[in-house]
Design a protein around this nucleic acid. Structure first.
Lengths: 152, 152
DNA sequence: TCTTGACCTTCCCCCGGTGGGAACCCTTTT
DNA sequence: AAAAGGGTTCCCACCGGGGGAAGGTCAAGA
C-alpha cells in the first residue's frame, strides 16, 4: 500500500502520515526502490488507532504513550486508564470553562434588545461599565465575570 | 504610559500589544522621540475591552468588529447582539462536541479495571475491535463513536 | 558624572496540528 | 509516447501567543 491508499484506509491524510513519521509518532515507513513509502495492513490498524485516539481530543504525546501501551501485550491496564482519566478531567475542565463563557455571554445577549437603538449591555459589560446609564436606572452587571485568567 | 504600564493596566501583555498593533486590531501607537510607544487611559480602556472580549472566546476578527461597534455611538444593538449570539452558538457546538468526547471516553475508562492486567476496553475500542476477547465473551462496544469528522 | 538595572525596540524561532503549493520524480493508462 | 495521477521533499500559512537575542533609553544611586 502506498501513502495515499493507507491514508484513505485509515482516515489519516497523506500529509499527516508524513508528519506523524517526522515527529516519531510512527516509525519510518519502508520504501520502494523509487522511494515511495509502503504500508502494511498492520500499519493501517495503527493509524486507525491513532486517528481514533485523536478523536478523543488526546494530544500527540499522549497518543504516542497509548500506542506504545497498545503494542505492549503485557501493559497494565492501570496505565491506560490513568491516561484516559486525565483526559476526561481535562475535557471536563475545558467544558466548564466554555460553559461559563457561554452562560455569561448568553445572559448579556438576552439582556440586549437587538434593535436599531445603540444602547447594548454587551458592549457596556465589555467596557467594564454599568450598562448604558441612559435613564438613570441602577442596573446590575448582567454577566458574572467568570474567570480571572486568560484561557489556557 | 509606556507599553509595560499599559499592559499591566489592561491585562494585555506588552508582546500582545505589539502584536495587536501589527495585525491592525488597534491603531499604531504614538511614539516618544526615542521610539517608545505611548498609551492614553482611553487606549487602556480599549485594551481592557479587547481583553474581556477575548475572555468570551471571541476570535480576533469578531473582536475587531465589536471594537468598531463599541466606538460607533450610533451603532444598532442588533449588530452587537448578532455577534454575541453567533458566538454563543459556536460555544454550544464546541461544548457538545467536547461533551460527546468526554462521555465516550469516560464510559470506556469506567469499563477498564485499571489494575495490573493487560486487558483494557479503552485500547480495544481504539483498535476498533471487541474488547479483548479473552474469555469468548460477546461484549458490545463500550463507547458510541460520536462523530465522523475530525475536530474543527 | 558615571554606572547599573529596568525598560524599550525590532527581529526571529517555537508551540500544535493541519492545509496549500512548488518543483520534481515515478507509475500506470491510453 | 504522452498524459494523468500518483509519489517525494521543502517551504509557507494559520492562531494567539511565549521566549529570547541584540541593541537603544531612561532613571536612580554612588
Amino acid at each position: 500500500m502506498n501513502i495515499g491508499e493507507a491514508g484513505r484506509a485509515s482516515g489519516v491524510s497523506a500529509k499527516m502520515l508524513r508528519y506523524y513519521e517526522s515527529i516519531g509518532l510512527i516509525p519510518q515507513a519502508r520504501r520502494t526502490e523509487a522511494g515511495y513509502r509502503t504500508y502494511s495492513t498492520g500499519d493501517v490498524d495503527t493509524l486507525r488507532f491513532i486517528r481514533r485516539a485523536r478523536d478523543f481530543g488526546l494530544p500527540m504525546d499522549r497518543v504516542k504513550l497509548l500506542v506504545g501501551l497498545w503494542q505492549d501485550k503485557n501493559r497494565p491496564s492501570r496505565e491506560v486508564k490513568e491516561i484516559a482519566t486525565r483526559q476526561v478531567a481535562e475535557l471536563e475542565a475545558k467544558i466548564s470553562e466554555l460553559t461559563a463563557m457561554k452562560d455569561a455571554l448568553e445572559a448579556l445577549a438576552d439582556a440586549c434588545h437587538g434593535d436599531s437603538h445603540p444602547e447594548c449591555p454587551i458592549l457596556s459589560d465589555l467596557a467594564g461599565a454599568a450598562p448604558t446609564p441612559l435613564h438613570h436606572e441602577a442596573a446590575p452587571r448582567a454577566g458574572q465575570r467568570f474567570s480571572a485568567g486568560r484561557l489556557p
